[in-house]
C-alpha cells in the first residue's frame, strides 16, 4: 500500500517537473529566436546602401546596391541593378531566385 502512495507522489512530482521543463524550453526557444532575429535585422540594416553581389539560379550573377528586405524575407529591394540589358535604377529581387549574396563591409569598424 505504501508503495502505491509513493508511486502517486512520484507521478505528481514528474508531472510538475515536466511542465516546468516545458515552460523553460519555450522561454529558451523564444530567447534563441529573438537573439537570432535581432542579429539578422541588424545585419540587414548594416548592409543597407552597400554594393552587393547576387548569385542566382541558372548561373546568373548580378550586382546591385542593397536597400531593403520585406518583413518575411520574400523580396529584396535594390537600386542600380546591373543586368546584361542595362542598369535598373530600382528593382525588386525575388529571394526565391537568389542562392546567396555577398557584401564587402570594409574594415568592419562600426559607425558611431
Amino acid at each position: 500500500m505504501e508503495d502505491g502512495v509513493d508511486d502517486k507522489t512520484q507521478n505528481n512530482d514528474i508531472l510538475q517537473s515536466t511542465s516546468t521543463t516545458n515552460d523553460d524550453r519555450l522561454s529558451q526557444e523564444q530567447e534563441d529566436r529573438s537573439f537570432l532575429r535581432e542579429r539578422f535585422l541588424h545585419f540587414l540594416k548594416g548592409i543597407q546602401g552597400k554594393r552587393t553581389h547576387f548569385k542566382m539560379y541558372e548561373k546568373t550573377e548580378v550586382d546591385a546596391t542593397f536597400q531593403l528586405s520585406d518583413i518575411d524575407g520574400q523580396n529584396f529591394l535594390v537600386s542600380d541593378l546591373e543586368t546584361p540589358m542595362g542598369t535598373q535604377p530600382q528593382a525588386m529581387l525575388r529571394c526565391a531566385d537568389i542562392i546567396s549574396c555577398s557584401v564587402d563591409i570594409g574594415t568592419g569598424e562600426h559607425k558611431m
Binding site: 529566436r33 537570432l36 542579429r39 539578422f40 542562392i99 546567396s100 555577398s102 564587402d104 563591409i105 570594409g106
Partner: peptide, 28 residues
Amino acid sequence: VHTVDPVSESVVLVHFEEDRQKTVEIVM
C-alpha cells in the same frame, strides 16, 4: 556564423581576411 534568420533560415556568414577587409555573405 553571425546569425541564422529563424524566419527564412538564411545563414549569415562572415569571411575574415588577412588585411581585415571583411566580406559578409548571406546564404538563402
